[in-house]
Amino acid sequence: MAEPSAVVAQLIFGIVRGILLGCVFALIAHGLNLIWGIAKVVNVAHGEFIMLGAYGAYFLNLFLGLNPLVSAPIDAALGLAVGLGFYFGFLHRELRGKEAITLQSEMVTLVATFGLSLFIANAANVLFSGNFVGIPWNAGSVELGILQIPLGGIYVAILSVAIIALTQIFLNRTYLGIGIRAYSQDIPATQLMGINPTVVAAIGTGLGFGVTMAGGAFLTVLFPTGIYPYMGALYAPISFVIVVLGGPGKMWGSLVGGITLGIIIDVGQIFLGPSIAYAVAFLTLIPVLLFRPEGILR
């Protein structure tokens, strides 16, 4: 390795980039976590909706010339609609009228959403052609001493944290949000409060999808040429690991988990090479599950 100061500079660069990446990872994991925490459904097709979000940004750029930051809210709105469709077309049949989600029903949705993920990824592969595409958008960069930080990365990281914070405020401060949280705790109690559980679960799912697809748009800023139909196969496991690291249902946990994973991947890439970095990131899951099954945050 080079002289110490260069190593330190690399380390700092890795950490900074890791934090930026981690914030966006946190956002996509947050989308999964919302659906997992609220509707108690682990959406195996999560990665495919990230992919759709990324393609949404790609096509909006291709046809309308929008940059990914502008596309993200459009993606989010689409995600909301897709999420409502997903809930009514897919989950409602299994979850309707259940007072608690059993392990059995969890397995059913696990397998069913897996089928959906196969369908979406391969349909996308046929429709969009299986090539990597990208969005030619560069927001420039800032220089911090010897470091060059891409501005686009900073924007999406800040926006990601802002979105997580906004959903938190929505869930904690608004009538509908509190109803959604009540649903996630205790379904019969929701009904006693005079809230329609179906409406609440559907909106919660829609919210999760909106966040997920906006996250997909943000990813295209960090990985400008990384859009392709099977990209979900990478981002879904990353999201799963982050949610487990942070603790399912804990929204700020996703942010901590996301940044942890972002730093492991980016710093690891510099010192261990990309392969081992990802292997380490994935395997972090095991000690956490063994020793801190409630996530790294208390």
Binding site: V42, V244, I276
Partner: peptide
């Protein structure tokens, strides 16, 4: 190790195994 985890947690813990394995084999 992984059979201690129930339901989704087992599924996810096993999911990352081949991903990590291929990354290790590559190098």
């Amino acid at each position: 190790v992984t059979l201690r985890f129930r339901g989704v947690y087992f599924a996810i813990a096993t999911l990352v195994m081949p991903l990590a394995a291929v990354d290790i084999i590559l190098v």
